[in-house]
Structures are given as structure tokens and as C-alpha cells.
């Protein structure tokens, strides 16, 4: 299947501080990313919105491949976006490439890049199992 993928320059690798998050706005204000440079050198991008109460994950503490939400300390994987037990939830993840020391994030046409399946359910207002109201 052909997809329209756009590649957007974010910043230079050197200008990303290690183990800290960078807050990235898309100008229309509908999406915000948190971009992290991890201790192992990997760069990861996730939606900047904790599944719990929408905390700004970019300001969280980064440990290994996890970020701890600064609001209520949920532990979120920056690799697959999943909240760690006992909490349950998930944030969108975005693919990142580095070329010539420059960091790019890849968006597909819908802005719904590579979100794991679990993310299609938002807690609390969607019925996950069952088909009530059919």
C-alpha cells in the first residue's frame, strides 16, 4: 500500500540534550511531540500527552527507555508508547531518522504514524470488548 509519508526536520542531534525531552509543536496546535535523546544514543518521538491526565511527557524524567510523567509519575515506554504496570494506557509513537546529524520525524498522511494497536482505544469512553448498542 502506498502511503504519503512526510519527513520533517526537527533539530540537530547535537542540540538535543541527553536524557531530557524536547517539546515539539506542530504549528496548528493540534499535535505536540516529545522527542528524547536516550543515554544509549537512540532518539525517540512520542505524542506529548500522558494517557492518564494529559501530562507533558517532554518534562518527565528519562530512565533507560522510559519516561516518568511529571504529573503523576506514570512510567511510559518511549519505544512502544505503552504505560507500564500496574497502570494501563498508551501514547502514539513516531518514527525518527537521523541523517547527517539532523533529526527528522516521519509522519504519514493522517498524522497517525505507527501508533500501536492499543492506542486506538481511549480509556473511559470507548467500549473495548463487546458490541453494545448494535
Amino acid at each position: 500500500m502506498e502511503k504519503l509519508v512526510s519527513k520533517v526536520f526537527i533539530t540537530k542531534v547535537d542540540e538535543l540534550p541527553e536524557n531530557l525531552g524536547k517539546r515539539v509543536y506542530v504549528e496548528d496546535g493540534n499535535l505536540e511531540l516529545a522527542v528524547f535523546k536516550l543515554a544509549n544514543g537512540d532518539i525517540r518521538a512520542i505524542e506529548n500527552r500522558c494517557p492518564h491526565k494529559a501530562g507533558v511527557l517532554s518534562e518527565g524524567m528519562v530512565s533507560g527507555e522510559y519516561v516518568f510523567c511529571p504529573m503523576h509519575d506514570w512510567k511510559i515506554s518511549v519505544v512502544d508508547g505503552k504505560a507500564q504496570g500496574p497502570d494501563v494506557g498508551c501514547v502514539k509513537t513516531f518514527e525518527v531518522t537521523v541523517e547527517n546529524g539532523e533529526v527528522y520525524v516521519l509522519f504519514d498522511g493522517s498524522g497517525e504514524a505507527s501508533a500501536p494497536l492499543e492506542c486506538s482505544h481511549s480509556l473511559g469512553n470507548t467500549i473495548v470488548a463487546g458490541k453494545a448498542g448494535e
Binding site: 512526510s6 540534550p17 531530557l20 515539539v24 509543536y25 506542530v26 504549528e27 498524522g111
Partner: peptide
């Protein structure tokens, strides 16, 4: 100041 306080803005077309 840059590491901690500056945000990055990308254009709308990015999506």
C-alpha cells in the same frame, strides 16, 4: 537555556 526552555515549532504541513 536552550536545552531546557526552548521548544521546537514545525509547520502545519508536516502532518
Amino acid at each position: 537555556a536552550r536545552d531546557l526552555y526552548e521548544n521546537v515549532k514545525i509547520p502545519v504541513g508536516a502532518k
